[in-house]
């Protein structure tokens, strides 16, 4: 269990003065992730909001070595850094212990960077991959990704007169896909559950070999919420079982926080402007379907946890 007072004694590895929107979840994710590691860390970042807002030349918000090279390749880039580290350490040219972390948004992770992520995990590089999942291409102005949930309106899946649903497809369950890579550690958390997040990221850094942590990270612009609600909305995602908190450690599935009472999905949907159209007359069935999908996935997860744990 992490302790905030202890954590606060560590220096800030991400400074203020970055250009993320007020209330953006991404820097919150980064701050919490970097609080979880005590050894020096090298950061790689995919193209996206986080990279763009934190490294506007000549202003870098990073107090750690940082590299960005392209959108789809942060896992490959960091695997090269980690390979260099192993090589130079073996040759005695480096003595320090160093950890490696890659940050990518959902676009850079679920979609365009998926191949490079899968490859890096399969090769077994000792690195932590963090997906800050805000459920759409926010940097280019809110376009749908394979992480966008069914029913969300984005600029490329708008709620129209004929297609009234917004995005018609369900989201890809990337955390489960990464678990299928059979790597030492996979977990899912949110920035609104700092203790859960830091505990998981610590484990991710501690294991030898690759680890993947999928962090639900609100985008107040794309989700159309009040910036002050960016943390609150995460709790709704977990309480409705839309985004269960769980981990897969050496193949053992475990729910890390079970809501005392499973709330109806509307509690997650209603506060977000991107789901506003779902509450118009005629879309009742859509909400029922979304609820049924959440229920089905939650049941499946619980079964996996029973079997695994």
């Amino acid at each position: 269990m992490a302790n905030l007072r202890e954590l606060s004694r560590k220096g800030e590895l991400l400074t203020g003065g970055h250009r993320a929107c007020a209330g953006c979840g991404a820097p919150v994710a980064v701050r919490q992730v970097l609080k979880a590691v005590d050894t020096p860390v090298v950061v790689g970042c995919a193209t996206g909001c986080l990279e763009v807002t934190t490294t506007i030349y000549p202003y870098s918000a990073w107090n750690v070595p940082f590299i960005h090279s392209a959108f789809e390749n942060v896992a490959a880039t960091v695997s090269g850094i980690e390979a260099a580290y192993r090589s130079l350490k073996r040759q005695g040219k480096i003595q320090r212990d160093i950890q490696f972390v890659a940050f990518g948004g959902d676009g850079g992770t679920y979609d365009i960077g998926f191949q490079s992520l899968s490859g890096a995990m399969e090769r077994g590089h000792d690195m932590v991959y963090i997906c800050y999942d805000n459920q759409a291409y926010m940097n280019t102005g809110i376009q749908r990704s394979s992480a966008t949930p069914r029913g969300a309106a984005t600029t490329t899946s708008p709620a129209g007169r004929v297609i009234t649903a917004g995005k018609t497809q369900y989201r890809k369950d990337l955390t489960a896909v990464m678990a299928a890579h059979d790597i030492p550690y996979v977990a899912q958390t949110t920035i609104g559950h700092w203790n859960d997040l830091i505990t998981k990221v610590r484990k991710a850094f501690e294991v030898e070999g690759p680890a993947f942590v999928n962090i639900l990270t609100p985008c107040r612009l794309g989700w159309q919420i009040d910036p002050a609600d960016s943390i609150e909305i995460c709790r709704k995602a977990v309480d409705t079982c839309f985004w269960p908190l769980y981990e897969v450690e050496n193949g053992v599935w475990k729910i890390t926080l079970k809501p005392r009472e499973k709330k109806p999905i509307t509690e997650w949907l209603r506060p977000q402007g991107r789901f506003r159209h779902l509450f118009k007359p005629g879309n009742e069935k859509l909400i029922e379907e979304i609820q049924a999908d959440v229920d089905r996935r939650w049941e499946m997860l619980q079964k996996r946890c029973e079997v695994g744990g």
């Binding site: 905030l4 007072r5 954590l7 606060s8 004694r9 800030e12 991400l14 400074t15 203020g16 003065g17 970055h18 993320a20 007020a22 209330g23 953006c24 979840g25 991404a26 820097p27 919150v28 701050r31 919490q32 609080k35 920035i191 609104g192 700092w194 960016s230 943390i231």
Partner: peptide, 19 residues
Amino acid sequence: NCLLCWIYCPDSAIQVKDG
């Protein structure tokens, strides 16, 4: 001094000293 404001601040703007 629960520090929740600090851990959730996106801009590292809550100043904390000695906890």
